[in-house]
Simulated assay, not measured.
Amino acid sequence: MASKQAANLTHHLTSESTLTTVAREMKYLWPFVAGLGVSGYIFLQVGLSVTDEDVKNSKFSNPNKH
Results as ranks from 00 to 15, higher is better:
A2D: 12
A2Y: 07
S3Y: 08
S3D: 15
S3H: 09
S3K: 12
K4V: 04
K4D: 09
K4C: 03
Q5P: 05
Q5Y: 10
Q5W: 08
A6E: 13
A7S: 12
A7Q: 12
A7C: 00
N8C: 06
L9T: 03
L9R: 06
L9Q: 06
T10Q: 11
T10V: 11
T10G: 03
H11Q: 13
H12F: 02
L13A: 04
L13S: 00
L13H: 02
T14Q: 12
S15W: 03
S15N: 14
S17P: 10
T18S: 11
T18D: 09
L19Q: 14
L19S: 13
T20A: 15
T20M: 03
T20V: 05
V22R: 07
V22C: 00
V22A: 11
A23R: 14
A23T: 08
E25D: 14
M26V: 08
M26N: 10
K27M: 03
K27V: 04
Y28K: 14
Y28P: 00
Y28R: 12
Y28N: 15
L29K: 10
L29S: 09
P31H: 06
P31I: 05
F32M: 13
F32L: 15
V33C: 07
A34V: 14
A34D: 02
A34M: 13
G35C: 02
G35Y: 03
L36G: 15
L36T: 09
L36M: 15
L36N: 12
V38P: 03
S39N: 07
I42N: 02
I42C: 01
I42G: 01
F43R: 10
F43P: 01
F43Q: 06
L44A: 03
Q45S: 08
Q45P: 01
Q45I: 00
Q45N: 09
V46S: 04
V46I: 15
G47C: 02
G47I: 00
L48A: 09
S49F: 03
S49M: 06
V50Y: 11
V50P: 02
V50W: 12
V50G: 04
V50D: 01
T51G: 04
T51V: 05
T51N: 08
D52L: 08
E53I: 00
E53G: 07
E53K: 13
D54A: 13
V55P: 05
V55H: 01
K56I: 02
N57Y: 03
N57K: 14
N57I: 00
S58Q: 08
S58W: 10
K59M: 01
K59L: 02
F60P: 00
F60M: 10
F60I: 13
F60R: 07
S61C: 05
S61K: 10
N62W: 08
N62F: 10
N62A: 02
P63H: 09
N64V: 01
K65I: 04
K65R: 15
K65W: 11
K65L: 11
K65C: 06
H66R: 07
H66L: 00
H66S: 06
